[in-house]
Amino acid sequence: MSTTELTTRQEGRRQGTQSEPWVDDPYSRALRSGRGPLFLRRSDGWLLPLDVERWCAAPDAADTALLRRCRGPVLDIGCGPGRLVAALTAYGHCALGVDVSPAAVARTRGAGGAVLHRSVFERLPAEGGWATALLADGNIGIGGDPHALLLRIRELVAPGGRLLVEAAPYDVDERLTVRVEDARGRHGSDFPWARLGTRALLAAAADTGWTPAEHWEADGRPFVDLRHRRGAGAKPH
């Protein structure tokens, strides 16, 4: 996971300031330093650790297995600090990252990757022409509505193209409101998020006109290869 698409503002409860999720909050500070600890916190106190150090490092074996499946021009949605975009560029791919976090954009550019400071729901280059799109690190959660996200990506990927998605490593299908928080209790504002395991992801894909081609696991991280079905429409949801 690297970003959310929500850009509304609310009053910071502990710091007495306004902040945007993934922008002027602990996430930005963690990306600049390359270190955590960092968490997603739900309103009931539940915490999900975020793997900042891995996101800011070179691609690991699981990432490499994902990258080897990329074909043609690649769009990395919620690219975070840009390790995948930079690696794809080094492999000779035409690759573009998009992210709403200025800190993520800066780090991606510093790593040599092409990136736009933009939401996936805004206008993007080459819509309908991307051969591969990526949703790594939990980014199926972007916006809190996986169906809306999968439908949007159908507009971006070429017919017959692929969407490579990392699922949650357990059987889960939930929509929730979270905020980014560090170990000192500093946090950004609340935003919608979602978490889908492989089974829930496959169901959402079927509802939105995607065909599963493959699923695999590497280092405990599950992935699904979805294909853009020509002429397929979304089911009522």
Rank of each mutant, 00 (worst) to 15 (best):
S2Y: 02
T4L: 03
E5C: 05
E5I: 03
T7K: 06
T7Q: 13
T8L: 13
R9F: 06
E11C: 05
E11F: 12
Q15N: 13
S19I: 02
P21T: 06
P21N: 08
P21E: 03
W22V: 02
G34R: 04
R35D: 05
G36Q: 08
G36S: 09
G36W: 05
P37N: 07
L40Q: 09
L40D: 02
L40K: 07
S43V: 12
D44Q: 07
W46T: 13
W46K: 06
L48G: 02
D51H: 03
D51C: 00
V52C: 01
R54L: 10
W55E: 00
A58G: 07
A61D: 14
A61F: 06
A65S: 14
A65D: 12
L66E: 03
R69A: 07
V74N: 01
V74W: 00
L75S: 01
L75Y: 00
L75Q: 00
D76Q: 02
I77R: 00
G78S: 04
P81G: 06
V85I: 10
A87T: 15
L88K: 07
L88F: 12
T89N: 04
Y91L: 14
H93I: 07
H93T: 07
C94W: 11
C94N: 10
C94H: 12
V98L: 05
D99E: 10
D99V: 02
V100A: 06
V100R: 02
A104G: 11
A104R: 01
V105H: 01
A106Y: 03
A106S: 13
G110L: 06
G113F: 01
A114N: 08
R123W: 13
L124I: 09
W130I: 10
A131W: 10
A133G: 11
A136T: 07
D137I: 04
D137L: 11
D137R: 12
I140N: 01
G141Y: 00
G141W: 00
P146Y: 05
H147V: 14
H147K: 07
L151Q: 13
R154F: 11
E155Y: 08
E155M: 12
L163W: 12
P169C: 14
P169R: 15
E174I: 11
L176C: 13
L176D: 09
T177Y: 05
V178C: 06
V178S: 03
R179C: 14
R186P: 03
R186H: 15
H187W: 12
S189D: 14
F191R: 02
A194K: 02
R195Y: 07
R195M: 14
G197Y: 12
R199A: 15
L201T: 11
A203W: 08
A204R: 04
A206Q: 08
D207I: 01
T208E: 08
G209T: 11
P212K: 09
A213P: 07
A213H: 14
E214D: 15
V224C: 12
L226Q: 05
H228T: 11
H228N: 11
H228Q: 13
G231H: 13
G231Q: 13
A234W: 02
K235D: 13
H237R: 14
H237Q: 10
